Simulated assay, not measured.
Amino acid sequence: MTSDAIELRRALADRIGESGSLTDPAWRAAVAAVPRELFLGTDVYRLDGPEWEPVNRAEAGEEAWLRQAYSDTTWVTQVDGTDAADAKGPLAGRPTSSSTLPSLIVRTLEVAGIQDGDRVLEVGTGSGYSTAILCHRLGDKNVTSVEYDPGLAQSAAAHLRAADCSPTLVAGDGLAGYADGEGAEYDAVVATCSVRHIPRPWLWQVRDGGTITTTLSGWMTASGLIRLTLDDQGVATGRFVGDHVSYMLARPHERPPRPLFHRLPGEVRTSRVDPGLLEDWTGHFVAQLAAPSAESWTSGEQVVLSDVATGSQAWTEAAGTGWTVHQDGPLRLWDQVEEALITWQGEGGPDQTAFGLTVTDETQTVWLGTPEGPSWRLPV
């Protein structure tokens, strides 16, 4: 361990503290102590235009590599299942694993409200860095971490051993949680991946009064960070915290492949809302709640929606001082999104802190204002 690495870690903890993402001294001490360079392996990806370029530690040089490791940056380690160390050259594709920026990790842990002595289930080991942060605070015996990708689980285990951490590590589907032979009753579940809905096993494996902290996302890639508290009736409730936070979707919740998209004229009408509302963080989230099986993207000034399940589509275009919308297929996607946006705007267009989630064994409902207010069911 070099003195340069120690100083860089302390400087990283200071920068995150100054940004406001890190207020708990125990998490600050963990950031200052855990050697992040151990969790990047020998290669990472760097985005270069439309492609991901592999960067090798030896070729970059040790000083540059350490500065990279201790920047508050997410470093992609896998693209479409190909590890950076195995890439033969630049790749086009989507990231499937990364070492998440430290400020996001500690912000998520602070939202979770974890206390000394808590028993925590982490869903999504990834590189193992966040697991090491948990181990530093709670001790190895109180940390269980589950990783879906067997190769990533193996490399994370090696990284953690190098950092002198020995939590319980499991290769498997974290959406099923992890119940050991004596049964599980965690104080907290923390997910470092996003989900489209709350997996029921998480409810079953958290003690009464325990918490579930995760990012709720979907196929439009909108997201919201939330902490839920489980009551003695098995019902979990909570409000979104309003942070602009996103994690990769858990792989079982990723959208299925869809065929090449072609715009169809469909039925045309005037839109009642400005499609630009989807550029707002909360507006985008509301649109996703209204059309949970659809993807969205922009093409020039147009907003495009495509439903993965039915092939339905909608796309907008400017028309004078307003907009028209084209809709085709069994679902009227823009009708659904438009109605939700009008409801949200009618309540004053508040940010995500005005939204909450109630989860039972049967239903999962996002609501606006209060549980009795406007609401949308999640795709369970």
Rank of each mutant, 00 (worst) to 15 (best):
R10E: 08
A11P: 01
P35D: 08
L38F: 14
G41F: 14
L47A: 08
D48I: 05
A58W: 05
G61R: 09
L66R: 15
S71M: 02
T74R: 06
V76H: 05
D83L: 15
L91F: 10
A92S: 12
A92C: 05
L104M: 13
R107M: 15
Q115Y: 04
R119P: 02
L121C: 00
A132M: 02
L134H: 02
R137C: 07
V146L: 10
L152Y: 13
L152M: 15
H159P: 01
S166L: 11
L169E: 02
Y178T: 01
D180E: 15
D180V: 06
C193T: 10
C193N: 06
G209D: 05
R227T: 14
G238W: 13
Y247M: 03
L260C: 11
E267P: 04
P275L: 11
L277E: 08
F285G: 01
L289G: 09
A290E: 02
S293A: 07
E295H: 14
S296P: 01
S296E: 11
Q302Y: 10
Q302I: 08
D307S: 06
V308H: 15
A314R: 03
T321F: 08
Q327N: 10
L341I: 06
T343A: 12
G346I: 13
G346M: 12
Q352K: 15
V359M: 01
W367T: 00
P371N: 09
G373R: 02
